[in-house]
């Protein structure tokens, strides 16, 4: 009885699905975005690989790029000033950086909203108080917070590097709406962000490195890799130790297992 019922139910599902299979499909015009969209260029980052590490100097340069260019529109609200110690900044330097930002607070006499100078314990402030304010100021576009951007986009660091260096003239068959810019690395190809890196030497690096567009893009992508995954180095170091330990433990476990079973498996030595 069960099997007869099953046969009936099975046939019902199968016929329904096959009915769906034979339905004609509407012709779909090939998506022009798909043809023009490019995958980010592969970069050899210092953080790649099992022993990957951050280059402190590069992160500091990246922070400079962020501060002088990106921070006009993009916040890194999940990062605290104190976190900058990981970039190699000293405590007084961090204090000075923090003091350069205004942090919202309330006046402790009147209770009115006011601002105070930033402290190391504070986070980088938001640039717009909310999404509506951001869109109002940015012509309808929303500049995302960059704290997690390299984890929130496929192939993050490569994507950031390719996106900000990848602006190009739109091909003839592609119409870019007013106020947007053509960028083959952007999902919809039309990005609201104007090319942030206009020319070489747009900024002057404190450490004297030549600020080519590519260099600035690499540096800021490295910085944003850190903002998204500040524990990357600890993670990889712990991982190497954990796996080395587990391999030894597993080898010991295997030998113990063979020893326990030795008398049950009386088998040719060749196996």
């Amino acid at each position: 009885m069960i099997r007869l019922g099953a046969l009936g139910v099975g046939l019902l599902f199968v016929i329904t699905l096959l009915w769906g299979v034979i339905q004609p499909r509407e012709a779909v015009a090939p998506d022009p975005v798909k043809a023009l969209h490019k995958h980010p260029q592969e970069i050899e980052w210092t953080t790649n690989g099992v022993f990957g590490k951050f280059d402190r100097k590069q992160m500091q340069r990246g922070f400079q790029v962020y501060k002088e260019i990106c921070s006009a529109c993009h916040s890194i609200h999940r990062v605290a000033f104190r976190d900058l110690a990981a970039l190699g900044f000293s405590a007084p330097e961090i204090k000075a950086i923090a003091a350069g930002y205004d942090i919202a607070t309330i006046d402790d006499k009147t209770g009115e909203p006011t601002t105070r100078k930033g402290l190391p314990a504070d986070k980088f402030p938001l640039i717009y108080p909310n999404e509506i304010a951001a869109r109002a100021a940015q012509n309808g576009a929303l500049p995302p917070d960059l704290s997690l951007i390299t984890k929130a986009r496929e192939d993050g660091p490569n994507y950031v590097h390719s996106l900000i260096t990848g602006y190009a003239d739109a091909p003839a068959n592609w119409k870019v709406p007013d106020g947007l810019y053509y960028n083959p690395y952007f999902r919809s190809l039309n990005v609201a962000m104007p090319p942030p890196l206009a020319a070489d030497d747009q900024i002057t690096y404190v450490d004297g490195t030549k600020a080519t567009k590519d260099q600035m893009a690499r540096d800021v992508a490295t910085f944003l890799t850190w903002t998204a995954e500040p524990k990357l180095e600890a993670r990889k170091e712990t991982g190497v130790a954990a796996i080395a330990f587990l391999l030894i433990l597993t080898a010991l476990g295997y030998l113990s297992y063979r020893k326990v079973w030795a008398d049950v498996k009386r088998k040719p030595a060749a196996v």
Binding site: L246, I248, L249, L252, K259, D263
Partner: peptide
């Protein structure tokens, strides 16, 4: 049941080492 009586397994270095390693882990 299947173990032969020969050999003092209690002091077997391999088992002790494995157990110690597991404890450290």
């Amino acid at each position: 049941d299947g173990l032969p009586p020969e050999g003092e397994r209690r002091r077997d270095f391999l088992y002790v080492a494995t157990g110690a390693f597991a404890a450290v882990g």
